[in-house]
Design a protein around this nucleic acid. Structure first.
Length: 282
DNA sequence: AAATACCGCAACCGCACACAG
DNA sequence: TCTGTGTGCGGTTGCGGTATT
């Protein structure tokens, strides 16, 4: 495929977005939706490539963004999800409404990683260990083939998890649903499975890291319906509650000083107030 | 007060995938 | 089936703010 067409176009702006550009983009999407991103800059009167517009919208202008500092709960969740998924930021972000993959990725690289390192825990190493353990457990139980749990590069392999039996690893009582389909999952053992701790298996392993978490015993319920979290569906009014809209709109108002000039109205997005969150999948 | 170092985060880059024609 | 285009994602870069000297 090669480079994007925008690469070749001249006079396209790069770098930080100005408030005026933000305003144009928001106004355009409010009115018409984005349609094809490649056509957005032209229709909106922006000297940007479509890709840049998309990124700007998703990571900053989207009205449902929470922004602000991460709560302890969010941080814990990120750590556990990262343990299970590796650097699948988009999938991790799907479990944290109002957070973007970019935001989480940045937070991980700038804060969480540092904290874990300071605690003497190498998260990557332990992520790998988690999967090794999972492999052991699976081969001890039902798994017909668990060799693909650990890839050559030792990267956690979520899709490999998908074909494994319910007990996958010890990720601190993490509960994962069978609808792990965005990871390629096809678990047929009920509506969800629970990842149990095993004191013997995990002594000195992954639990060591997870023991650092303040609410380590709290199960995490992952509603893996990534499609529901695709931003484009927000425009169709399928995922946000009124409270979400209000709080997130408010959050946007309180965003960083760099981009404080634009203000959103929840009503400007059509049926925000009617949007309901997806039903919990328990 | 100025210079420098450090840090967080927005944005870009390049690749892979999906899909229409 | 092949090709071109659009989109999504993860990794990386570099700017701007803040802390330190």
């Amino acid at each position: 495929m090669g480079k994007h067409s925008c690469f070749y176009k001249q006079k396209l702006r790069k770098g930080l977005w100005s408030p005026e550009e933000d305003e144009k983009l928001v106004e355009h999407i409010n009115k018409y939706g984005h349609g094809s991103w490649s056509s957005v800059p032209k229709l909106a009167g922006l000297q940007r490539c479509g890709k840049s517009c998309r990124l700007r919208w998703i990571n900053y202008l989207r009205p449902d963004l929470k922004r602000g500092t991460f709560s302890q709960q969010e941080e814990d969740l990120i750590i556990r999800l990262h343990e299970a998924m590796g650097n699948k930021w988009s999938q991790i972000a799907a479990q944290l409404p109002g957070r973007t993959d970019n935001e989480i990725k940045n937070y991980w690289n700038s804060c969480i990683k540092k904290k874990l390192m300071q605690s003497g825990i190498n998260s990557r190493k332990h992520a790998v260990e988690a999967h090794k353990v999972a492999e052991t457990m699976c081969s001890d139980s039902l798994a017909p083939s668990s060799s693909n749990l650990l890839q050559e590069n030792s990267e956690p392999n979520p899709s490999a998890l998908s074909v494994e039996p319910p007990v996958v690893s010890s990720i601190s009582n993490m509960i994962l649903p069978t609808s792990f389909h965005d990871l390629g999952a096809s678990n047929s053992c009920g509506s969800e499975f629970e990842l149990q701790s095993s004191g013997v298996l995990f002594d000195g392993g992954i639990l060591q890291w997870l023991e650092l978490l303040p609410n380590k015993g709290v199960p995490i319920h992952i509603n893996v319906e990534p499609e529901e979290l695709k931003w484009s569906e927000y425009l169709n009014g399928t995922t946000l509650s009124k409270n979400d809209c209000e709080s997130q709109t408010h959050g946007l108002h309180g965003s960083s000083s760099k981009e404080e000039s634009h203000v959103f109205s929840a009503s400007g997005f059509g049926s925000w107030h009617e949007i309901q969150p997806p039903p919990p999948q328990l």
